[in-house]
Design a protein around this nucleic acid. Structure first.
Lengths: 206, 206
DNA sequence: TAATTAAAGACGACCGGTCATATATTTATT
DNA sequence: AATAAATATATGACCGGTCGTCTTTAATTA
């Protein structure tokens, strides 16, 4: 049985992309509840009605926005961790240094979209909760792989599982971002790096 | 110079209290942006217009709600840390055990009001940001005093400053709460306790 | 009585979401 | 090949509801 080919105009994927990108920008800056569909479509000069040709609801759209954010962040993380010139813990530290510098440029605002969804939305949308949880898990896995490499290389003690360490580091980073925004200061990020890299992951060969 | 006595009806302080308590409950459950004034006053059968007799704006009200939450949380924290039967780190652990049990009863939802404000509101309200930052600092000071006592007692190494440790622990707790909500699981809180008490604050006398 | 406050509801703006209509593209029928 | 039918997107008006605020009225005291 062959499913019938679609009819009608080609779906304008470029428009779908533009809506997601505009939504990501607005939601990152203003939060999910405070961001209206109208504002998103106004940003890119698209009529409001078009939005619902591409997304079933604001909730479904939010889930896709979280997907997009996670993809971008994960790509950057993987980019840093793939730099095989450095030892694994150096690569991980370079990533957080890069993020800290980026947040400094933004005046220590906005934080992480997944963290924002976690605080604002996950209690009220099972769909978004599942997406956010899956993205966090994926990030953690990537960090855990880096830590496991350090353990195999002997620069990190193997007493603790790489997975547990990675989860803790990720959660701790999210908490540091919250405090960064409350204080409007990079100090919490510096404390994070000091505690994680100089104490928690303290190299035996140092 | 004597300031003139007030005129008009007696301010109904009981009503003010009731509005703050109702607002705290709603904002904790649904977030600041998603909580309407109407919902708050409906909860306690008060006409909407009355709200603005007691508060200049939703923003000013939010700042007071954060104050109330911080007072309550701080009172509980101080209560646990004042229990002089136990050594200081045990008292601190007992507090987090209590909070973890409380969040389990709520199905691992809602989290911390200050964390929620940090994610949702501090970028857009300098007033609320200053209140939240001050409350975090106060909490951190109380934890730092407990850690300093442990350092004086020799159960905690003094290599790191109690203040830096306290900030890190507080931020890390907030991050664990975010992850708890995303996963709807107490596991991040357990990881937090393991990492903080068994690794970071690892007692020399153990 | 004059001043000052709280009580209360009206208000305009905007929200997310829906719908009717118009237009564009593909398939089915001839 | 021509054309009708079917199905998709494009678009903005519109819905009930809620937003934060303001204005008016009633109450209380100097």
């Amino acid at each position: 049985m062959e499913k019938s080919a679609r009819r009608g105009p080609k779906p304008n994927m470029q428009m779908r992309e533009r809506i997601i990108e505009a939504g990501l920008k607005e939601i990152h800056a203003n939060g999910f509840a405070a961001t209206g569909i109208q504002k998103i479509v106004d940003d890119i000069k698209v009529p409001k009605g078009s939005f619902y040709n591409y997304f079933d609801s604001k909730e479904a759209f939010g889930a896709e926005v979280s997907d997009r954010y996670s993809e971008q962040a994960l790509a950057r993380l993987v980019g840093f961790l793939a730099d095989s010139d450095k030892p694994p813990l150096r690569r991980l530290k370079a990533y957080f240094d890069d993020r800290a510098a980026s947040f400094a440029l933004r005046g220590h605002t906005q934080g992480c979209v997944l963290g924002n969804f976690s605080a604002e939305t996950v209690d009220h949308s099972e769909l978004i909760r599942q997406h956010v949880a899956a993205h966090f898990s994926r990030w953690s896995e990537v960090i855990a792989a880096c830590l496991a490499e350090a353990q195999r290389g002997g620069t990190l003690t193997s007493e603790l599982s790489a997975g547990t360490l990675a989860d803790f580091i990720l959660n701790t980073w999210e908490g540091a971002l919250l405090r960064m925004r409350a204080e409007r200061s990079g100090a919490p990020l510096e404390t994070f790096k000091q505690m994680v890299f100089d104490v928690l992951l303290h190299s035996k060969s140092h």
